[in-house]
Design a protein around this nucleic acid. Structure first.
Length: 658
RNA sequence: GCUCGCAUAGCUCAGGCGGUAGAGCACUUCAUUGGUAAUGAAGAGGUCCCCGGUUCAACUCCGGGUGUGAGCACCA
């Protein structure tokens, strides 16, 4: 006799041990059919799993996010089976669930083509129709290795050999296909209702560029066709936010072949850039930073000393001048900041010394890594270096984190991904220093009270770092802010200060940036707002539209007085219908459209329409200035001003709160 | 850097078993002076990414490059 407690609290008694599938059947045939997996006391299991003791049991279906995840994992197996039917020589490797889908990496004599993808998808459909049961079994390591060796699956053999311990391994078989897997999996291949293979790309075996390149096939799977359709629509919507598209459409910047990875900023884009830079200047001034500026070209000897040349010579641009010296176009500002620190004898009383620079840097990034504004070869960071004593690290890192969150909130980012990257294989400095540095960053992260993730081995060669990342429109993680502890560079470049006991000591340097590169940050910002910048950032805050030529003079006066108040305003006096102008400037995502006809001229007012379509009615110039000033003053802090999400003819629906 | 895909008008994209090309929008001109998401008409606009090869003939086929997209690797 055992008692099963269901999620609704109801209890059911069974005479003998029962499987999840049997429990589902006993509840109802519909549920039995829908069952993809089960959950026993929180742990996911197959529907074939037998419950022998009293437990809390849930039947997992496609309506459950865990159910969809199981479905995706099983769909990866389904795809692998189809691949091996079509290409018996193909070897299987790994096939995990990711985000909204899954992938599977195959080794094959040639890359898969888009036509292959279609064929694989078709074969998957056939296997679904075959309704093959998916059965779990257990094998010892040795048995498993022998089996995969016989099958010629050398990657699977390698995977099993790298699993520590000698416990038994679980396997899942469906028809002729068997795969090593922890599971759980859906009970049969008939369970797949909506899947689609999305792309094929190369991926290195075990993520190492020294290894063979495998064929990675990406796919997505959903509980229903409707969900799949919604997902594909969501993808399309996300693509509309792509900063590369919007950058072109809103005339913010462009790239061209002659300068790969180096943006050409247009007037509107540069206005946005400058607003952000001026904002950061203010933030830094108010927080104890001294702004400096250092040379673009510095003799390669400095980069040798700093250790950068040894590691990054392939990624540095250089210039050979008429004096036969090799100058490096600076890839970063830190060695130059140490030079500024080194001028004049520093005392412990000078610490912490916070130097900041909007320094233009160039790096020869690998061609395949470039991505719009997110990864460029020329960029400017809101870069800063804090020279401090060891005992000041903790406080400096903590106040930096506070500052960073305040800035992100101003830009409307309420979700930040925090990661701590610790010592990499190739590194400088003693273990003791690394211990200390990593601990101080951990302490600072814990002090934020927020969730953070440890990324072992991903630190810089000179020290560990905290990375603060945001997501782009496709959900890719973009690293923006960072703070890095560096016990090495100051010493290697001869930085010293006089301590209280009049001994010479080497300061610690904290590399830090809040936005990171302006380029990347603006890229993320554009995607965050889908191009509809809040008023404080919008390159054009308002545009004045006349109904007919008669109001032209009034409009020009209006434009001048708004400009005199510091607003970014222009007038569109073209001989076009008002509807045409409204449409055009709405598509350009200008926050306020100011319409002037005879009525407004007569009463000395203007009619205000917001970008989302909301009509604020007629108001005086002063009232409008007050309104716009208030809007600007709120920056991008969300929840302060809410724009009514009017959806006029379906065009402006991507507008977000301003 | 690696794998695969893509490159046609300012933009978004069609197109052709190899015979030098089209649409919509934008642009120019003319008419129109209209109250909240496209007024009408006419016109102009292309080395079909670059360099080679095959061919009577290449934008199209082949090779190499460059740029770009997805993914991998890298990211001071």
């Amino acid at each position: 006799m055992l008692q099963i407690t269901l999620p609704d609290g109801s209890k059911r008694d069974y005479e003998n041990p029962v499987s999840i599938a049997e429990i589902a059947e006993s509840i109802g045939p519909g549920l039995a059919k829908a069952a993809l997996a089960g959950r026993i006391d929180g742990a996911l299991v197959d529907t074939s799993h037998v419950v022998a003791e009293n437990a809390e049991v849930a039947i997992v279906t496609e309506r459950d996010s865990d159910g969809v995840e199981v479905l995706r994992h099983s769909c990866a197996h389904l795809m692998a089976q189809a691949v091996q039917r079509l290409f018996p020589e193909a070897q299987v490797t790994i096939g995990p669930v990711i985000g909204d889908g899954f992938f599977y990496d195959f080794s094959y004599e040639r890359p898969f083509t888009p036509e292959d993808l279609a064929a694989i998808e078709k074969t998957m459909g056939e296997i679904v129709k075959e309704n093959l049961p998916i059965d779990r079994s257990v094998m010892s390591r040795d048995e498993a290795i022998a089996m995969f060796k016989e099958m010629g699956e050398k990657y699977k053999v390698e995977i099993i050999e790298s699993i520590p311990g000698d416990e038994d391994l679980s396997f899942y078989r469906q028809g002729e296909f068997i795969d090593l897997c922890r599971g759980p999996h859906v009970p049969s291949t008939s369970k797949f209702k909506a899947f689609k293979l999305t792309s094929v790309a190369g991926a290195y075996w075990r993520g190492d560029a020294e290894n063979e390149m495998l064929q990675r096939v990406h796919g997505t799977a959903w509980g229903s066709k409707a969900d799949l359709k919604l997902y594909l629509q969501r993808l399309e919507e996300a693509e509309k936010r792509d900063h590369r598209k919007l950058g072109k459409h809103l005339n913010l910047f462009h790239f061209q072949e002659e300068a790969p990875g180096m943006p050409f900023w247009h007037p509107k884009g540069w206005t946005l850039y400058q607003i952000i830079q001026q904002y950061m200047k203010g933030v830094q001034d108010a927080n104890g930073y001294k702004e400096i500026n250092t040379p673009q070209l510095v003799d390669s000897s400095l980069w040798k000393k700093s250790g950068h040349e040894a590691k990054f010579s392939d990624e540095m641009f250089t210039v050979e001048a008429a004096d036969n010296r090799i100058y490096v176009i600076k890839p970063m500002n830190c060695p130059c900041h140490v030079q500024v620190f080194n001028q004049g004898l520093k005392s412990y009383r000078d610490l912490p010394l916070r130097l900041a620079e909007f320094g233009s840097c160039h790096r020869y990034e690998p061609s395949g890594s470039m991505h719009g504004l997110m990864r460029v070869r020329s960029f400017v960071q809101d870069d800063g270096h804090i020279f401090c004593a060891e005992e000041q690290i903790q406080a400096e890192v903590a106040s930096f984190m506070d500052l960073l969150f305040a800035v992100y909130r101003d830009f409307g980012f309420n979700e930040v991904i925090l990661r701590l990257s610790t010592r990499p294989e190739k590194r400088v400095g003693s273990e003791e220093l690394w211990d200390k540095a990593e601990q101080s960053l951990k302490d600072a992260l814990n002090a934020t009270g927020l969730h953070w993730e440890l990324v072992p081995g991903e630190g810089a060669f000179y020290g560990p770092k905290i990375e603060c990342s945001l997501k782009d429109c496709m959900g890719r993680i973009q690293q923006c802010g960072t703070i890095q502890v560096d016990f090495f560079t100051p010493g290697s470049l001869g930085a010293q200060y006089v301590a209280e006991d009049s001994d010479r000591k080497t300061p610690v340097m904290l590399h830090r940036a809040i936005l990171g590169s302006f380029e990347r940050f603006i890229g993320v910002l554009i995607e965050q707002y889908a191009g509809a910048m809040p008023a404080w950032l919008s390159p054009e805050q308002a545009i004045i539209l006349n109904i007919t030529d008669k109001q032209a003079g009034y409009c020009l006066n209006l434009e001048e007085s708004l400009k005199n108040k510091g607003f970014r305003v222009s007038a569109d006096l073209r001989n076009e219908k008002i509807g045409f102008k409204i449409r055009e400037h709405t598509l350009q995502k200008i926050p306020y459209l100011l319409v002037v006809g005879d009525k407004e001229v007569e009463s000395g007012t203007l009619a205000v329409r917001k970008r989302g379509g909301e009509d604020l009615g007629t108001m005086t110039i002063d009232d409008f200035c007050d309104h716009l000033s208030q809007d600007v003053a709120h920056l991008g802090r969300s929840g302060v001003i809410k724009e009514i999400a009017n959806n006029v003819n379906g065009v402006a629906k991507e507008d977000v709160a301003i």
